[in-house]
Amino acid sequence: MAIPKLIDEKAQTLLSLLHKDQRWLIVINADPDSMGSALALKAILSRKVHDIGIGHVNEINRPDNLAMIRYLRVPTRRLIPNLIAQYDRFALVDSQPHHHPELVKLDYSIVIDHHPLSAEKPVHAPLTDIRPKYGATCTMLTEYLQRLKIRPPKLLASALVYGIKADTQSFQRKFIDADINAFKYLSKYADHTLITRIVRSEYHLEWMRYFSRAFYNLRRIGSGLTAHLGKVQSPDILVVVADFFMRVHSISWDAVSGVFGGTLVVIFRGDGMRKDMGKFAASHFGDMGSAGGHKGAARAEVPMGALDGKDPEMFVLKKLSRGKTASVQRI
């Protein structure tokens, strides 16, 4: 697999930032793509620096993510002040600082990501490598491994394969030739039995009640669906339900919302043909919280305090319908 000249330049920049006495923390918003990418960067740094850790900002409750951590031995820990204090250099993969309130608090030396850039919130780091055309950040890290002649061991290759598979939805979502090339290359080294185990770990039994709630609260807005699930144990259930509703015939987008802790979370999914869900999320919720993502998948998080006592379900419906709630149809 040919390595673009850009990767050669970026790889050299990365190596120039490393010193044997450094202690690096790789920060992620944990999902398959970010965890696979973090493991790859860890493999690169491990040959050059004193210590490397991985820290995640989100709750990890989705069964497939937990299975990935278990089977592929992802050594990630919750990002807390005590963990941060143990490190003197920080890297961010598969995300950008403005994507999460906790991410923006750190000063990064490395940012590697495939999400769209925001003109209003530029990213500054000695190594900034952001390529929105790529289907997965795992693809980008695979190119770094190849440029640096690091052959991925079985568990790392499996993590990278699963990260690409998850973020491209098995190549049904946006991807480019580089994603296919990386997937083919990694497949030679990956353990596909382990990957199958992870893929089959999708739902917690206790999540079934949220599906019932989603069906009860389901609304239609044009060619889209929306449902509010109230208080949820984890935002991951919103992702699962949003993915499920995209299987409905004639539906081109959906938005599933819920309250987690003190935050209103809205998960967006689209067919990738009509609406750009990243822009859609940002235009509807970006003025009140963090919002953005891809053309086919996006997320918004709004502090409950910003709602000034408004009912979160009605707040979301009014935002999505731009105040024209008469156009909202109950299913």
Rank of each mutant, 00 (worst) to 15 (best):
V241A: 01
L106Q: 14
F268W: 01
V248Y: 10
G323M: 03
A125E: 12
I267D: 07
A298G: 07
S327F: 07
F90G: 09
I7H: 11
A300N: 10
R209D: 13
L145H: 13
R70E: 13
D33K: 00
S257F: 06
K324E: 12
L103A: 05
K318D: 11
T193G: 14
D33S: 00
Y162M: 09
T137C: 09
I237R: 03
N29C: 00
G258I: 09
L127Q: 09
Y87H: 12
R197P: 01
L218K: 02
Y87K: 09
R73Q: 11
I198W: 04
R299L: 11
I3M: 05
K10S: 10
K20T: 04
Y71I: 07
L218E: 02
V241L: 03
F315V: 01
R322H: 10
M304R: 11
V265G: 05
S46Y: 08
L186I: 04
V49G: 12
G224R: 02
I251H: 05
F285Y: 07
K5W: 00
K42Q: 15
F268Y: 03
A136I: 03
H114T: 11
V123N: 12
T13L: 06
G270D: 03
N58Y: 06
P101C: 05
K165E: 07
R200H: 08
G53D: 07
E206N: 12
I7C: 14
A91P: 14
V241I: 14
K184M: 08
Y144P: 12
T168R: 01
K324P: 05
T76H: 01
A227P: 15
R62E: 09
I180H: 14
L141G: 10
V27S: 02
I69M: 13
H204L: 09
R78C: 05
Y189N: 03
S234W: 02
L317C: 00
G272K: 01
M246A: 10
P4W: 02
